[in-house]
Computed example of a mutant assay.
Amino acid sequence: MDLGVISVRYARALLKSATEQKIEEQVYKDMASLAECYMEVPELRSSIDNPMLSGEKKMHLLTTALGNNPQELSKRFVVLVMKEDRENALQFMANSYITLYRQQKNITRGKLTTASAVSAATEQKMKQMVEAKTQGTVEFTTEVDPTIIGGFILEYDTYRMDASVKSKLNNILVELKK
């Protein structure tokens, strides 16, 4: 069976259970922590995939990756996944849960890239603009990238507004070459 299909099925079941218990937001934080650990600590995947590592040690690693004070449901979910020998798909299950939760709660991810740090008020204004456009909640991140020289790049969903000085200069250069 396809790894993606399996991951989504497990994630749906977890979301349904979490919603029934009214703890879907806390489980979302647990799954986000787990997904982040997989991204930031590449050794986690190789450790979980290692057949020589005992199930108890894998369980300890995964429970730690769930973050501080994880929900009992999240821990039981990891136990179930381990029992079914599906731990190699756990990263995908966590990411699928995150995606399903965001769809259910109408949450959009947004990103603002600027040449230098912006004030909290400016960041909040951009976030409110995106929320007004999407009619939902926005998980907003900011990034400083001096290579864009000035201006900003705003991204959310499939939308991208590039108002950076670098892109403007590149456009002028392209026009001059014609």
Results as ranks from 00 to 15, higher is better:
6 I>L: 15
102 R>Y: 00
48 I>Y: 02
30 D>F: 15
83 K>Q: 15
39 M>H: 11
15 L>Q: 00
145 D>C: 02
55 G>A: 13
60 H>K: 11
168 K>P: 03
5 V>P: 01
38 Y>M: 10
94 A>S: 04
50 N>V: 08
114 T>W: 09
14 L>R: 11
141 T>I: 12
28 Y>G: 12
141 T>P: 05
124 Q>V: 00
62 L>C: 04
136 G>F: 03
47 S>I: 08
27 V>A: 09
144 V>R: 09
151 G>P: 14
38 Y>F: 15
129 M>L: 13
75 K>H: 05
51 P>L: 06
1 M>H: 11
169 L>V: 07
82 M>Q: 05
72 E>F: 06
20 E>Y: 00
168 K>N: 09
68 N>R: 12
1 M>Q: 07
163 A>E: 07
175 E>R: 07
96 S>T: 06
99 T>H: 11
33 S>G: 03
128 Q>K: 13
136 G>K: 00
13 A>F: 06
114 T>K: 02
124 Q>R: 10
42 P>Y: 11
81 V>R: 02
177 K>C: 02
4 G>L: 07
110 G>P: 01
25 E>W: 01
167 S>R: 14
59 M>G: 09
118 V>E: 07
110 G>S: 05
8 V>P: 06
101 Y>K: 09
175 E>S: 14
58 K>I: 00
147 T>G: 07
118 V>F: 14
15 L>K: 00
111 K>F: 02
156 Y>M: 10
149 I>Y: 04
123 E>H: 04
171 N>R: 15
129 M>I: 05
164 S>Q: 07
85 D>G: 07
145 D>K: 09
42 P>S: 11
167 S>F: 01
93 M>Y: 14
92 F>I: 10
109 R>V: 06
161 M>K: 08
1 M>E: 11
22 K>N: 09
98 I>L: 04
104 Q>M: 13
105 K>C: 09
108 T>V: 15
96 S>R: 13
65 A>D: 11
134 T>I: 15
60 H>R: 04
116 S>R: 14
89 A>W: 09
126 M>D: 04
110 G>Y: 05
106 N>G: 03
144 V>K: 05
32 A>N: 11
76 R>N: 15
116 S>C: 08
63 T>M: 13
172 I>A: 01
77 F>A: 03
74 S>K: 02
99 T>V: 07
136 G>H: 01
45 R>I: 06
100 L>F: 03
49 D>E: 07
24 E>R: 14
163 A>V: 06
178 K>Y: 08
104 Q>P: 01
16 K>L: 04
45 R>N: 14
11 A>M: 08
116 S>I: 14
60 H>Y: 00
123 E>A: 09
114 T>I: 04
169 L>C: 05
25 E>M: 03
120 A>L: 05
101 Y>I: 05
122 T>E: 08
161 M>N: 06
111 K>L: 12
66 L>G: 07
64 T>M: 15
133 K>Q: 10
12 R>W: 04
110 G>K: 06
7 S>V: 03
31 M>Y: 03
140 F>M: 15
48 I>E: 03
170 N>Y: 06
173 L>P: 00
72 E>S: 14
44 L>M: 08
11 A>T: 08
17 S>V: 13
62 L>N: 02
21 Q>T: 00
25 E>F: 10
126 M>T: 09
153 I>H: 03
106 N>M: 05
79 V>Q: 15
85 D>Y: 11
133 K>N: 08
157 D>R: 15
19 T>L: 03
131 E>G: 02
137 T>L: 11
83 K>H: 09
32 A>H: 07
99 T>D: 15
169 L>M: 10
137 T>V: 13
